[in-house]
Each structure stands twice: as C-alpha cells, then as structure tokens.
Design a binder for these strands. Structure first.
Length: 289
DNA sequence: AAGAATCTCAACCGCATGTCA
DNA sequence: TTGACATGCGGTTGAGATTCT
C-alpha cells in the first residue's frame, strides 16, 4: 500500500453502509443534488469519506439503478461491447441504462469471462483459445495469500457491521422489459457514464449533468435519443451541443455514426476476420475521442 | 453434519484526468 | 503555466453465501 487511504482519518467509518447512513446520504442528495463529494459527508452528517459516499450513491442508492439479473440480451451486448471497448466498464455501463460499471465489471469477472473461456474464447482478446480450458485455481491461491497478509483483527473490526448492514432482498430472478424507443431523454433513468461517454470520455460529466436544468441529466431538449430494438435498450445520445460533440458533427453525421456503430457491433459475429477486427478496433478508438 | 472450496458483489485502493485559482 | 484539489475509473479485496466433498 502506498499512500494513506482517503478514509484513514481517525473517526471515519469504513466497510458496509448502515441503513441510517444510506438514509442520510439519500436525503442529502435529494435535497442538494450530487457533486461536491469531498465536503458532502460532513454536511450530510456522515462519518465517511467523499469517495465512499460517491461510490455508495453511484452503485447502490441512485434511484434509477436497475436491480435484478442481467438479461441474456444484456449479457450478449456486454460481450460485444467488451470486444469493442475492452475493460472500459464505464463506457459499457453507459450503454446499459440502469447498470453500473461496478456491476458489469463484477458480472464480467464472475460470469462472462468464464462463459467465454468455456466456449473456447479468450475473454481478454475475444479470440479463439488454442488450448483447452483448464479450471484455474488462481483465485484460491490469491485468497489464501491475501488472507494471510491481512491483519485479521483489523478485518474483523472493519466488517463488524456486515450483518447489520442494509441488505437488499435477494435479487428477483426477473428479466425486466427494456424500452424500445425513447423520444425524450428526460424520461430516461439517469446514467452519468452514458451521457458523458457518448459525447466525450472526460470527467466533465458530473458538471455537465448538473447544469441540466429540469432534467437530472443536464441534457437539453434538443438532444435526441436513439434506442435500437436489436440493442435491447442500448441508448445512443445524439446531442446538438457542439461543445460536446467532437468535430461539430451535425445530426446527419451523428446518425451515420450510430449506423456505423450498429454495423460494427453486428459484425463482431465475424471478428475472427482479422481485417474486420482492425476496423472495429479503429472504430472503437474513434468513439472514444 | 461439518468443514472445505468456490462464488458473489459491495467496498476499497491508487492512479489518471479534469478543473480552477 | 502550474500546482492543488476534486472526481472518475479500473483493479482488487474479502466477508458472507452457497455448493461441494
């Protein structure tokens, strides 16, 4: 461990959040909005660091978080997006409304990477594996190693509230229906990564979003939203805001961009084709600019 | 039934990047 | 231009739950 963690200040809580803390944070954000994470805990009466508050809100408390299983369509889309974007979880999450980057990252690590491996595909490169899959026990070794290194007393204290934490009911095994068409962005669930990542990859998202007037997104009413049925809820934001769109793209070119993106994703079925993969890679890069 | 092994996912960490004075 | 600060991101951890032996 290098520098001291941000929550190391004496008196700051760590570990699982209590229902009371959740309530305090939620109420504060409902009243004052997001942002200013550093000063928020104090103002909200929380003994937490700002980072912890932000994470809790973004990954758990936000009202638009979609709880429940990843649907097969989302599953498929995550794989396709990962083949295009790699481990850019926030970008991937931005195209799955209601899903968080943490959730997708976890889902990838626990389910999809194994699934791909079992199908003979390298999850990191999306190329065919040359050798048969051998069940790895890396994790076990790693766990043992880290457990041995950890001060057990410290961990016991750290997680002493675990049982008392705010525990969601078991995730229902439901596949929620997805929107097929959206005409107004303002009716969509909020997703920071979504808007920011479709127009830029910078961290200006929170500020951009905050300035959005009536909607929680900060997306003006000229913004158009495209939701394609094949993508099962994947949303593409087409903004008129030239500041946010590189090269001052007009609506027409952005529609082309969307079409191009669509084609690129569909073509991933054949990504064993080297040339095709190169095109995808370069296109994915272009999306990130 | 009990202990071991494995899985899941919330939360943490450090670094990268953006913002602003 | 620069440096301090704030925020976002991806990798990692580990407690509790679940499955296996």
């Amino acid at each position: 461990m290098g520098r001291a963690p941000c929550c190391s200040k004496v008196g700051l809580h760590r570990g699982p959040w209590t229902p009371r803390e959740d309530t305090l944070l939620t109420k504060y954000i409902e009243a004052h909005g997001e942002g200013h994470w550093r000063s928020m805990p104090k103002k909200a009466g929380l003994l937490r660091c700002g980072k912890s508050c932000r994470l809790r809100w973004m990954n758990y408390l936000r009202p638009d978080i979609k709880r429940g299983n990843i649907t097969p369509d989302e599953d498929d889309l995550i794989v396709r997006l990962h083949s295009l974007l790699g481990n850019r979880w926030s970008l991937i999450a931005g195209r799955l409304p209601g899903r968080t980057d943490n959730e997708i990252k976890n889902y990838w690590n626990t389910h999809l990477s194994k699934k791909l491996r079992s199908q003979g595909t390298d999850p990191s490169t999306h190329k065919k594996l040359s050798e048969p899959v051998v069940k790895e026990n890396k994790r076990r070794i790693k766990n043992q190693k880290t457990k041995n290194n950890m001060n057990k007393k410290e961990m016991a204290v750290k997680h002493k509230n675990k049982t008392g934490q705010h525990v969601e009911p078991l995730k229902p095994k439901v596949h929620l229906p997805k929107p097929t068409r959206v005409t107004s962005f303002l009716s969509l669930p909020r997703n920071d990564s979504f808007t920011s990542s479709t127009t830029s990859t910078t961290t200006t998202s929170s500020q951009d979003l905050k300035g959005g007037g009536g909607g929680a997104f900060g997306v003006n009413e000229n913004d158009q939203v495209l939701v394609h049925p094949w993508a099962n809820g994947v949303v593409f934001c087409v903004s008129d805001d030239q500041d946010q769109v590189p090269n001052s793209a007009d609506d027409h070119t952005l529609e082309n961009l969307y079409e191009e993106y669509l084609q690129a994703l569909l073509k991933t079925d054949h990504h064993h084709d080297h040339q095709n993969q190169l095109e995808l890679d370069s296109f994915a890069e272009s999306l990130l600019i």
